[in-house]
Design a protein around this nucleic acid. Sequence first.
DNA 1: ATGGCGTACACCGTACGA
Length: 261
Amino acid sequence: MKLATWNVNSLNVRLGHVIDWLQANPVDALCLQELKLPDEKFPHQALEDIGYHACWAGQKTYNGVAIISKAAPQDVQRNIPGYDDPQQRIIAATLADAQGMPVRVISAYCPNGQAVGSDKYAYKLHWFEALQQWLADEIQRHPDLAILGDYNVAPTDADVHDPDAWAGNILVSDAERQAFQGLIDLGLTDTFRLFDQAPKIFSWWDYRQMSFRRNVGVRIDHILATPDLAGRCTECVVDKTPRGWEKPSDHAPVVARFELP
DNA sequence: ATGGCGTACACCGTACGA
């Protein structure tokens, strides 16, 4: 089973890339973030045409998340239960594969935070607290669970092209890294770090100043898994290919493969 | 140096992302 995540920075603009990528990489599920379109504009027909189901939580202009999957999504949950938030940043669904083993899949678009100390930064930290509280329950209910998405946190200095230049900045501040660690402390594993990885692998590069060509980036898109599922993870990679296409998203997809029990 | 680039909405600029 392969699960993937991709912040597409507008699904209107990137639908062609998503379809091309799925046809070249027929994963079982692809979690999307930053749809930037309302529910009624979600292109479900184009995805059905290539053999995928979808569930989504859209929002005009900002945010918006989806799960595109070969299996029909079950028990779909939008938003963090009990956390009143007009921003559409979470969707969860249970996917049963052909062997019938259900996996709980969550697509997450964690807040950016804009600048350390700002109102948006405070919102980011509160949002992570709510996420952690909800996940503590969700993990109990679903032993095989993966939460994939744009966390807007680079967990360690190894995930930043120039840690000295970024020190204390948004995406790497102590409080943000502690919020991310709070998820790890629930028993979740950053599947990328289960494996030996080359240095300087990132998932986001600024559009400006040829950052992608210079590999000036950060690793902020992650696939976290519960112990049962992480124990069956055999690979986790960043696919840089679509970042080099015409009019790319500034994020690259991340893909993890899991052995079935 | 809050600039650089890209997207959306709307207006001929502003908000936001990371």
